[in-house]
Design a protein around this nucleic acid. Structure first.
Lengths: 255, 255
DNA sequence: GAGTGGACTTTCACTCAGTGAAAGGTGTGG
DNA sequence: CCACACCTTTCACTGAGTGAAAGTCCACTC
């Protein structure tokens, strides 16, 4: 190759992935030029890759000629065992909580320093919430996030506390010392709550899901289960109980 | 390349996709050799591609060293607008039906000659059903399938009737003339039912979801909504009403 | 504990698939 | 009409990709 790409170790595979990863929640429909910019690749290169990806049905073109993720990649994604096995086990329990509380129910895991939402059940009447399956939020501003952070490895937790934390609302707790104390409470009490920390007018409760330990010993927290409601009112105990029952059920059902 | 691959037009991109498409519902964890066989590529080639895909976090290796679809591909798949936009609009309505009926609820589209399940809500108590989000079944043996087939283009419908049809149970209707009459009834009545056609002991009702036409004219059926229950009992009317309310709601909410 | 079969990994010389600057279209707006 | 932005195609060069073959690892057998 004459000029070749700036970054070393550039293979076709890495370029293909760069193109695919250029899509995100806010950018689901992209043109060649924008994809090239986002993937940091020359336009003609991206253009050719896109043609081959479309030929392979990995991508499709929408009515406006822009490129979108296609059905077959969706299919492939649905085969990721890490996400879908947990999601599948949890699904009936989420339904139960949703039926019992009519609140928005979330299933989430920790991905690095973010909450990754695996599933969401929301009623029509419930609070509008940003999260959807596949979306990410910071660990410190949501109920499920606090649970996951509280049960993360100590090293990661301490690192997180020293990082710059986003403040979606004025109620978001970003003071390291205050957050550290909150997390200790979450571990001790077994649940986390937030009020107006991510979205004004939205409160949340969340509990950890632990893989049921065969013998004794430390239980590994694999995910978190949470609900979002307009206000916690007097309901806290009832909602918490529903969550904990479900979390235990999921933990027992895990392989 | 000295020998090169048998099939012409073999690019790296097509090879990568062949490797990814080698995964399916029954084969989520695969070794190099099996992947190579399924993708019809030489083992060393697949091996190198796999390494690069793992480096790019598209794939992961499970505890047994086998390759599985990774988190980032799941992420990417969740961005497919065709599947997820419909799924997202429909989600609260599925919750409503599920809460009202406690039955297993399905959202599905037609993909060629198959039903593609986009979402499923199942209670713990409900009939065990094979379908899950991302899985496919033949069009003629399920409620949602009959709805989608009934509203498919006439040409495709006729072609389908001449094809060999699988018979999961003895009650599956595969006789072309009988099925054609059933589909006419489905179009006229606006819903489809099955009893024991896919799974013994499972019945289903399904209705079409049509994009709400702005003016008058033909409404385009984009998906189907169905539930699966142990037996229809006297409940048929109530269940059907719940479904139809939801289907209209989704149709109105579509962009 | 040597032997055997199977799957996984690495090597390496050859060469053609991939590359990207440049040029050619296409469409929109001033 | 020109200017600008985006999409698409061309083409000569060359190193990234290729896959047969050889090497490694592991489990299971006799």
């Amino acid at each position: 190759m004459s000029g070749n790409v700036s970054s070393p170790g550039a293979t076709v595979v890495s370029r293909v992935l760069a193109v695919l990863y250029a899509f995100d929640n806010g950018h689901r429909r992209l043109g060649v030029t924008e994809l090239a910019r986002r993937a940091d690749l020359p336009v003609p290169t991206v253009h050719r890759l896109l043609r081959e990806l479309v030929a392979g049905e990995a991508l499709t073109r929408d009515s406006g000629g822009r490129y979108v993720i296609g059905r077959r990649l969706w299919d492939v994604g649905m085969l990721a065992p890490e996400q879908t096995e947990l999601q599948q086990v949890a699904s009936p329990f989420l339904s139960d909580i949703h039926a019992a509380t009519r609140a928005t129910v979330h299933l989430a895991v920790r991905d690095g320093t973010e909450v990754l939402y695996l599933d969401r059940l929301s009623g029509r009447a419930s609070v509008p919430v940003v999260s959807r399956a596949g979306s990410r939020l910071p660990l410190h501003a949501t109920g499920v996030g606090k649970v996951l952070l509280a049960h993360a490895p100590a090293q990661l937790r301490e690192d997180y506390l020293t990082m710059e934390m986003r403040r979606p609302t004025v109620h978001t707790v970003t003071h390291p010392e205050r957050l550290r104390r909150q997390l200790a409470v979450v571990r001790r009490e077994g649940y986390a709550t937030t009020e107006d920390e991510m979205t004004l007018g939205a409160c949340s409760i969340a509990v950890p899901i632990a893989r049921a330990a065969s013998g004794s010993g430390e239980q590994e927290v694999v995910a978190a289960l949470g609900i979002v409601v307009p206000t916690l009112k007097r309901e806290r105990t009832r909602l918490l109980t529903a969550l904990q029952v479900a979390a235990r059920g999921i933990g027992r059902s895990l392989p």
